[in-house]
Design a protein around this nucleic acid. Sequence first.
RNA 1: GCCCGCGUGGUGGAAUGGUAGACACAGGGGACUUAAAAUCCCCAGGCCUUGUGCCGUGCCGGUUCGAGUCCGGCCGCGGGUACCA
Length: 906
Amino acid sequence: MSRYDPASIEPKWQAAWDQAETFKATREGDKPKYYVLEMFPYPSGRIHIGHVRNYTMGDVIARYKLATGHNVLHPMGFDAFGMPAENAAMASGGHPKDWTYSNIDTMVSQMKPLGFGLDWSRMFATCDPEYYGQQQALFIDFLEKGLVYRKNAVVNWDPVDMTVLANEQVIDGRGWRSGAEVERRELTQWFFKISDFSQDLLEALDGLDDWPAKVKLMQANWIGRSRGLQFAFSLVDGAHGFDRVEVYTTRPDTLMGASFVGISPDHPLARELERERDDIAAFCRQARQGGTTEEALEKAEKLGFDTGLRVRHPFDTAWELPVYIANFILMDYGTGAIFGCPAHDQRDFDFATKYGLPIIPTFLPAEDSAPDLDEAFVPARTDRVHWVRAFDWPQDATGDQAVEAAIAFCEANGVGQGVTRFRLRDWGLSRQRYWGCPIPVVHCDTCGVVPEKKENLPVTLPEDVSFDTPGNPLDRHPTWRDCACPACGAPARRETDTMDTFVDSSWYFARFTAPSATTPTDRTEADYWMNVDQYIGGIEHAILHLLYSRFFARAMHLCGHLPEKSKEPFNALFTQGMVTHEMYLGSVLVEAPKTVFDEDLGQEIQSIGGSRAKYYYPEEVCRFEVDGKPAALLRKFVEGRGVDTSDTASLRDLWRRDWDLTEVGEEDPKLQVFPSAKMSKSKNNVVDPVNIIATYGADTARWFVLSDSPPERDVEWTAAGAEAAHRHLARVWRLAADIAGSEDAANAADEPLLRDMHKCIDEVTKGIESFGFNAAIAKLYGFTATVQKSAAGSAAKRAAMRTLAQLMSPMTPHLAEDIWAMLGGTGLIANAPWPVADAAMLVSDTVTLPIQVNGKRKSEITVPRDMPKDEVEKLVLQDRHVVRLLDGGQPKKLIVVPGRIVNVVL
RNA sequence: GCCCGCGUGGUGGAAUGGUAGACACAGGGGACUUAAAAUCCCCAGGCCUUGUGCCGUGCCGGUUCGAGUCCGGCCGCGGGUACCA
């Protein structure tokens, strides 16, 4: 008999699907549609096992939906603009375009053998001019709708390379290449007016029932609606052209605890003082050092500079507060100015302590408590506290009540007004980089900023560029910048900024519905296929990508490119975990140990020499266990000593010995094993699916990445686990082959097998529908064992096996097709209707109830399924364990949950 | 710093508030075999006094007849933090 041979069956069935165009998305018939999408990959060079897991999840859904009678759209593309292509060009001299397209070719050729049910005819890359040209058309539409504008914003500026740095290129406040201290510098940049939609983007989260609650919460916090008071402090000596400082606060109830006013170094008043005074200019310069990230700003030491200016407290004109310039106040938030209440804000407390400012509590934990002088008292705003400096609210009000009362009081007394603000800032889309979508506008001396005419799109990137000098090659390109003004025809200059790559990924899902349309979308196609019914991707995109996409969908709707229903483009969202792998760390001797004379000790000592860390590939390692803990030895070391790499006793023996390194270049044979490490090229623990497919086949890889962990969590790739998955698939194939050739008569074992089959259908179907892939696979393991052990007749076994193949087909489609064909299934299993569990086969006549005593399981009882409660109670009280524990007494309470459990309370 | 998650045997994990540890890996034992591979079967959270005994889901407390699951507070790890994608 032949054996399970994925190398021959997998290409065979892939060819069959291709020929039948099984996965080509069509709008035929009156079938319901289903659009499943996984976040498209960046073409980094090779696919990794994490991609395999991600796309397998989508494929399980896509194939299941196809089997349940849907027209399925399951496309794939590439998020192809971005910095790595430019970095590669800088490092090895090629062109970003060549690097990118060559990577895409490689990755497609690596993905096809995995047998994903994708409609490859719809594939595109965001760097295709056909795609980014339509993106430019969208930009122009948004511009006309007032959704795009220009303003100044800060960037990371490398003063040595004279270039803008991405946040990840700023390491410890310095440029990654130059090592120079990074400065924050203002540039005029393009912005999308996402803030117009703050309220809508926040409120619409409520309707996203099939999104993870954590993602909605993260987005809600990011949008950050707050209710507060905006008011002005008047300057004691109105000077420098300013007579007031406008502030926004979410805690107006603590106004009587104010002890200073802080302004951003970029506040207009600070700017003015900077021009007048050298000391302030020096402080502002220092405050602008470092990167632009919120993390860098928050973690930086809080510094302030007393301007000498004073403002009056709005309720007491004799009460004067100092005005500080502070490095932690951002011009982008609120008004760029705050008042500090050190008693109730830890940051203000630290600031006040540092600069000797008063700490005035406005409320205390309780009536008799003393103010805490060690830290700020910051209770939840829903907690009742005891007010000592209230304006006009009860002494025991909560923070929330006090804030509302304070706003009302201030408004009534002419001190500012209540306002609702959002934390969400407009989306800065300008990038001073080459490998991105050119912003399609022209700068004309007479007409100003003019959008390019749509008939001139796409504005394509010039190909003759070089990356030997830092900065944007578009900016120094000799001819590309020069063009005619679309309005007046006079000589003008192209915009040299390109778009943030988040723009590219904010509408690709819509483009997949009509990837060749000569407008951004084709409304017939978009109206049919949108929305994405199931979107799958990493939790790292919970905020930015998903929020930007939600904004784009709204903006595209306003411009007529998407229907009303697509304002929320993703009906359901699933966030999957990573694939991890053990990491093996050893060391190489770089300096030989030697005997040296130690002056302090007055004797000769042995120096250990110097060594550097080295990470090893799994193939370079012999992995075993010592006392239940993972251990590893260098494979070449083991083999060099003639030890069998599968002989664990000898490996442990080698492991227990000490191996001194003596010669430079020698490697320590003993390696440290770190489990569950994030895969990283530099740590040499990346698992390449190409090797896995060559060894075990695609179905094994697909099965294993789904089997071992719930999909939202990380899964550890282990060679042993993959091996075991492969053994199981081979077992299933053999079992099918056995059953195909058997001729046993029907018998009494048929019914229990068929009952188990229906139970399996029910459980696996529920598992797939709820993303419980690992649990579904556990059931499939169990059912395989059941079929194997069953004494049922051949007809029942064939039915069970065909069903097993169908239930496995979303995960292991090639194996399933092979078994289907072996057992006489009609057509392709991919097109066969999904099996339906017979409800009558799922119920049994009796039920076993666990008996708890005081909540702990002590016994059990098997009773007819529909036995009345009081009869169950009688039986429970006769149970010998219950009798023993009752010890002649009466239970306080007897809880019977029909069909589930009994609890006796003593 | 701030926001959001996660934490269960040696390991990955299972468990609508209802028998904690399904299924699998690693480990141990056995069958088959001249032998090996392959295959198949069995054992397996910890502890002890071996009783269907006690303890046990990161730590501390709470709600409940009953908590891995809900609530509060800690600890550890991970994601995001607006120019990585």
